[in-house]
């Protein structure tokens, strides 16, 4: 049996009341319910408060550079496509610094699950504007209010035909755990944008602000219909939908590589018995 104690990591250095605690809790519970042991998955994180996430757990960890979680996660997943690879990033990390990688990870449909702790502000560097900050919001480095439009990552992902797009809310652990499990079970690339209140630096998008607006998607909604997904993704303001917004079960990147079908790359022998013979054959082509 796997229990919460198996995932006990370092003591978090997040602010009291930070939305990250709930995300960590939901994640651990999702793992337990899916019977995933610490050595069976890898977290790749970047820089920001979300980047510290794997240290507060027990798991294979690559805490890399700011913005570069997805390329590292892609490399790991290609080397070992039997490994569950989860990329954890913040909104600045993934939608700002690493925006280009997001677009191409979605295109590749690589089997990486991306969890974005989206607090609509820069926490680690103490309160600067983020790509998801709302227009007009005042921050220390935006004396005229946020001048640029707000990025809607969910709409972006649907527009790019991302194979799994969902939104969660740190204030609803049970609901979040459920979509985390769905994302983990999804075969291709999954984007889970998690609304996460920053109690220290974001005085606009507070727990109360979100609670008044978020609602779980229920009823007859069909996430496999791209047009309704697109429409749903555009809802932002008085009402903000949370749940699975879009699914397109298209072929994954790994599935298109013939020699990964039977076994992951790491289980391929590095030097086969007839290695010299194969190399000699390749060299003969130069004669």
């Amino acid at each position: 049996m796997i229990s919460l104690a198996d995932y006990q990591g370092k003591m978090p250095a997040w602010c009291p009341g930070c939305g990250n605690y709930s995300i960590l809790r939901a994640f651990k519970e999702a793992l337990i319910e899916l019977y995933i042991a610490p050595h069976e998955f890898t977290i790749v994180s970047g820089i920001g408060q979300a980047g510290k996430f794997p240290h507060y757990l027990r798991c294979n960890t690559f805490n890399g550079l700011h913005g570069r979680t997805l390329p590292v996660a892609t490399g790991i997943r290609l080397a070992n496509n039997k490994m569950l690879v989860i990329a954890v990033a913040g909104d600045g990390d993934c939608y700002g610094e690493g925006g280009n990688h997001l677009i191409h990870a979605i295109r590749r449909n690589i089997g990486v699950k991306l969890f974005v702790h989206n607090n609509q502000i820069y926490g680690l560097t103490k309160g600067q504007v983020s790509p998801t900050s709302m227009e007009g919001m005042f921050t220390k480095n935006q004396p005229f209010g946020v001048l640029s439009g707000q990025l809607n990552p969910v709409t972006l992902a649907v527009a790019l035909d991302c194979s799994f797009v969902a939104r969660g809310f740190a204030g609803d652990i049970n609901h979040l755990k459920g979509i985390m499990k769905e994302a983990i079970n999804h075969k291709g690339f999954a984007l889970l944008d998690i609304l996460q209140p920053c109690v220290t630096f974001n005085k606009v998008n507070t727990y109360d602000w979100y609670r008044q607006r978020v609602y779980p998607i229920e009823g007859e909604y069909n996430p496999e219909d791209r047009l309704s997904a697109f429409k749903k993704s555009l809802e932002w303001g008085d009402r903000i939908p949370i749940g699975v917004i879009y699914i397109n079960r298209r072929q994954t990147f790994e599935e298109r590589i013939p020699f990964l079908k039977d076994r992951p790359l790491i289980d391929h022998e590095l030097f086969t018995d007839n290695w010299s013979e194969s190399i000699k054959k390749a060299l003969d082509e130069f004669f």
């Binding site: 390329p71 490399g75 080397a79 070992n80």
Partner: peptide, 11 residues
């Protein structure tokens, strides 16, 4: 970064 990821994972 991809090459580093693949190397970290064992390749």
């Amino acid at each position: 970064n991809m090459a580093i990821g693949a190397s970290f994972a064992g390749m």
